[in-house]
Computed example of a mutant assay.
Amino acid sequence: MDVRQLEYFLAVVDHGGFNRAASALYLSQPSLSQSIRSLERDLGSDLFHRIGRRAVLTDAGTALIEPARAAVRSLELARASVESVHGLRGGRVEIATMPSQSIEPLTGLVRRFTAAHPAVSVTLRAAFTPEDVTRMVRTGVCELGLLAAPAPVSHHLLRVHPLRGQRFVLLTPPDGPFPAGVPVRREQLAGHRLVVGQRGTGMRTYVDTLRAEGVGLTVAVETEHRTAILPLVLGGVGLAVVTEAWRDLAERAGARVLDLEPRTLLHVALVSRPAALTPAARAFLDAVPEDAAPHS
């Protein structure tokens, strides 16, 4: 068994099958299958059930995922550490990020980092809930994660690097029901139709809390596709509660953005594994400006 075989195994897992993994690896499908078969012989256990063109993980395959990622990450760390002796002249940092936070603060953080380290590439991977982010970092899919949650972020297996929180705001069409520049109280949302995200997100929790408190609003659309929210609002389908990360983008698109009262914050943080990070990931954390930290 060698690290290359583990990389191939993880590619099949991440891409959901042999054909797509082979394409991503620029290998022929028979070559990839042969490598996985060799790995299975070394381990004495099948890693996948082959069902037609589908590859479904066996229990043994599921058990291998986390140690395989750890082994691959260890090799990447060793290689990157040696290469960084003469300065950070290459490498890659992978970040799992929730959609709203990928607008801000991530855009600003990446801009600052790439300006300081133009030879390092940044890979952003989609995660839709805080649990998605922490799982991807904990299992080694990504070295860093950016998440937001209704309560201060904590995790017993990860290091937490708090960032400035984001308040909730209301998106309406330009001819919406509330006047521009005037904050909207939460109870004023009664009787209105809202576009909401999936369960487990901070903005969905905000809306669910209002409904539990007796505010009689209607969920017009529930969407996992965060990019659909702004077009739906502009199209008059409903209003939306989002974080202020959306403010500039929404206003440029023509939406009205109103503060919600009382002020409610979503807590934002970067997370990383307690194990050693690659020089690129450490440099990304070091590039976070002091003014991105929470106000004391």
Rank of each mutant, 00 (worst) to 15 (best):
F168T: 00
F168I: 03
F168C: 06
V169S: 04
V169I: 10
L170Q: 02
L171I: 07
L171K: 02
L171H: 01
T172F: 03
P174D: 15
P174S: 15
D175E: 14
D175K: 12
G176V: 09
G176S: 08
P177T: 06
F178C: 08
F178R: 07
P179Y: 09
A180S: 13
A180G: 12
G181V: 07
V182N: 06
V182A: 13
P183T: 06
V184C: 08
V184H: 06
R185Q: 14
R186M: 11
R186D: 13
E187W: 09
E187A: 14
Q188N: 09
L189E: 01
A190I: 06
A190D: 08
H192A: 03
H192C: 03
R193W: 11
R193F: 01
R193T: 12
L194E: 04
L194S: 00
L194I: 08
L194T: 05
L194F: 07
V195R: 00
V195L: 01
V196F: 00
G197E: 15
G197N: 10
G200T: 08
G202H: 04
M203I: 09
R204W: 06
R204I: 06
T205H: 15
T205G: 11
T205V: 14
Y206I: 05
Y206D: 02
Y206W: 14
V207I: 13
V207E: 02
V207W: 00
D208P: 00
T209G: 14
T209K: 10
T209D: 13
L210I: 09
L210D: 04
R211W: 05
E213C: 09
E213N: 10
G214E: 07
V215G: 05
G216Y: 05
L217C: 10
T218Q: 15
A220I: 07
A220M: 05
A220Q: 13
V221N: 01
V221L: 08
V221K: 04
V221T: 09
V221G: 02
E222R: 08
E222H: 01
T223L: 04
T223S: 13
E224I: 11
E224M: 12
E224T: 12
H225C: 11
R226N: 15
T227G: 13
A228G: 05
A228C: 07
A228T: 11
A228M: 12
A228Q: 15
I229Y: 02
I229V: 15
P231H: 09
V233Y: 04
V233W: 00
V233C: 04
V233T: 02
V233S: 02
V233G: 03
L234M: 11
L234W: 07
G235W: 10
G235R: 10
G235N: 08
G236F: 14
V237H: 09
G238A: 07
G238Q: 06
L239R: 05
A240L: 07
V241L: 01
V241M: 04
V241S: 03
T243E: 09
E244W: 03
E244N: 07
E244P: 01
W246G: 00
R247K: 13
R247A: 11
D248V: 14
L249Q: 12
L249F: 10
A250R: 02
A250G: 03
A250Y: 01
E251Y: 09
E251N: 06
E251M: 11
R252S: 13
R252N: 14
R252A: 14
A253Y: 07
A253T: 04
G254V: 12
A255T: 05
R256L: 15
L258E: 00
D259R: 12
D259F: 04
L260A: 09
E261G: 08
